[in-house]
Computed example of a mutant assay.
Amino acid sequence: MPTTAQPAQAAGTFLLGGDLPVNRMGYGTMQLPGPGVWGDPKDPDEAVRVLRRAVELGVNFFDTADSYGPVVAEQLLKTALHPYADGLVIATKAGLSRQGPGKWWPIGRPEYLRQQAELSLRNLGLDRIDLFQLHRIDPQVPLEDQVGTLKQLQDEGKIRHIGLSEVSVAEVQAAQKVATIVSVQNLYNLSKRTAEELLDFSTSNNIGFIPWFPLATGALAAGDGPLATLAKEHDASPSQLALAWLLRRSPVMLPIPGTSSVAHLEDNVRAAEIELSDEEFDTLTKAV
């Protein structure tokens, strides 16, 4: 497998919102805080090294959230990368509150979303957030009020683009009546493709699709499974093949594999250099 100094660039670029270019191989910060996505990392210095190494590898799209830590991941980004280089895109989210390790609760009240956006600006050291995503739709609050609050923040110049997380096609269409939606972020990987309809909708409408938990390879990577077999042929890891499949699946796909290890980061990002043949892509697609 060929390697370059900035392998993330091999994934190609996507124009987020039609005007914001990002390399399609990104990085997600969810694994940087402590267990249960709660508290400080076990090794804060390594967390900073991971973020800086990601930039060196050509990653220019970073996904985070106010609830990762909470606030820990956002502050780590600021510590590691501020002042941000030109072209570096930071995406964050609000709409999930935290009561402890592994505990998440949707809150979409307008005053809460506005408060969290203001805090994210401070914690990230930004004047404007490039992509602000509604982390979850709060069933207790009208969707138009939640997205409407983000539209107000956009009109005020505090956020540039609006995205959604864990949504259906119908919910995206409803949100689009209030504001322009440039990205969606749903659970999606080679082994679990329940968001296929949303991915196809996103591809048709040039909406960025950010798959979270992109490396669930399961039995496909075991023994003589198709991932393991192809990985040997490419001199790559099964995880790299799973990421290469995602990149091939759609031009709007923006994988954000996360890790707290520099070694794992380097392995993940180099997946961008793998080119699957039509036959290999079909083999993996049909294996599930």
Rank of each mutant, 00 (worst) to 15 (best):
L164A: 10
G100C: 07
P70T: 09
L150M: 15
L126P: 00
I90S: 06
T194Q: 12
N189Q: 03
A272H: 02
V184H: 06
A85V: 03
D267A: 02
N123K: 09
L187T: 06
Q75D: 00
D145V: 05
A170F: 04
N189P: 08
R98F: 00
T79F: 01
A287K: 11
L187A: 07
L247H: 00
W104F: 15
V262P: 10
S67Y: 07
I256E: 05
R24Q: 00
T92R: 10
S239F: 07
A5H: 09
A8Q: 11
A80V: 13
S239D: 10
H234A: 03
H161C: 04
V37N: 05
D145P: 02
D155P: 00
L121H: 10
L199M: 11
T217W: 08
Q133W: 00
L246H: 01
N23R: 15
F61A: 04
L51N: 08
A175S: 15
A11N: 01
K42W: 01
R136E: 04
G58A: 07
K93V: 03
L88I: 15
S250E: 03
T29E: 08
L32S: 10
A170R: 15
S183C: 02
A272I: 09
L284Q: 06
T92M: 08
E156Q: 15
G223A: 08
G148R: 07
A272F: 04
K286T: 14
Q116T: 02
I159T: 13
R53A: 09
K286L: 14
R270G: 00
Y27M: 12
E197R: 14
A263P: 00
L276G: 12
V167Y: 10
L254P: 13
V288K: 12
G28Y: 12
A174P: 09
T92C: 06
V59E: 07
G39W: 10
R128T: 14
R24F: 00
S237H: 11
I274L: 15
A228L: 06
V37R: 10
R24G: 00
G28V: 12
E266P: 09
P41T: 09
L276C: 07
R136G: 03
M30Y: 06
T64P: 11
L121R: 10
D278F: 03
G100Q: 10
A263K: 12
G26F: 13
G18Y: 13
D138Y: 05
A272K: 02
T285W: 12
F281A: 04
P110I: 06
E266H: 07
Y188Q: 03
D45H: 13
A175L: 03
H161V: 01
L15E: 15
G218Q: 14
L198R: 09
V89S: 08
L247M: 02
D127T: 11
Q185G: 08
L121K: 07
G225P: 14
Q185T: 09
P101E: 05
E74N: 13
L276P: 13
L113P: 02
D127H: 07
K103R: 14
T180A: 13
L77D: 09
Q185L: 08
L243R: 06
E275D: 08
T180F: 00
